[in-house]
Design a protein around this nucleic acid. Structure first.
Lengths: 127, 127
DNA sequence: CAGGATCCTAAACGATACTG
DNA sequence: CAGTATCGTTTAGGATCCTG
């Protein structure tokens, strides 16, 4: 198929574009990790917290709520005591998560190349 | 086709993993937009600033330096007066930028779906 | 023109304590 | 267990002024 030579990018560069907020939620510090983690399957809150190293309760909760509001994450609460809540990806969430995962994958796969590049440069200007 | 049932993700979930910093630079608020913009070609500082709506001089400068340190952006300064500096992607930068672009593309392409989902949910809890 | 230096505000983040 | 509330700290981010 013929690829379009000039893909017309929409409103992403515009200050008020709603894409930016969604992009922020998805690419936020913890958003990325949560999406990638949920790609593996369903997690409970505490398990997810253990899985994603370094995240606080507050931030995990906040991140999950943002992703849920965007329709990427499904929150399923079982009415038992003690509470049992499960988080998983919606079909739409799975799609974004795959994109994010692909990016994360690239970075992990090229970390060595990147770090080499980085050291080569920082050697020139030793603060 | 036999797909691997369990892709082993590396250290991304570990608190101290260097991938996280790179990921942050690439997925930062302005990092994303700069990478996508540079995918179109070379830009001068001011042009890039105009292109990326809403970015301040300071943040653009900071973002470019981070991406340059990671080896994603090439800074070319022509020794003339007034100064003429051009920014472009390195081969490695082009690779990440494509990943980021793909993600941004997905979001823009699905914005309508996302926004519908969002409104459906926020209607349930008014405030 | 390209950006560094400075100052200041707002937001993100984390730790702890507490509740249904 | 799964969070919310509160508080204090840190970082991001923006506005302005200044220089090579």
């Amino acid at each position: 198929m013929a690829m379009s030579p000039k893909k017309q990018r929409g409103e992403l560069f515009s200050v008020a574009c709603p894409s930016r907020q969604v992009l922020q939620n998805v690419t936020s510090r913890w958003g990325v990790l949560v999406l990638v983690a949920l790609l593996e399957g369903t997690y409970r809150f505490s398990d997810l917290r253990r899985k994603v190293g370094g995240v606080s309760e507050k931030m995990l909760s906040q991140t999950l709520q943002a992703l849920e509001a965007d329709g990427f994450v499904l929150r399923t609460a079982h009415p038992v005591v003690p509470p049992h809540v499960e988080y998983s990806l919606t079909p739409m969430g799975t799609e974004v998560a795959r994109e994010v995962d692909s990016l994360a994958d690239w970075i992990e796969g090229n970390l060595y190349r990147i770090m080499k590049q980085r050291n080569a440069r920082s050697a020139a200007s030793a603060h």
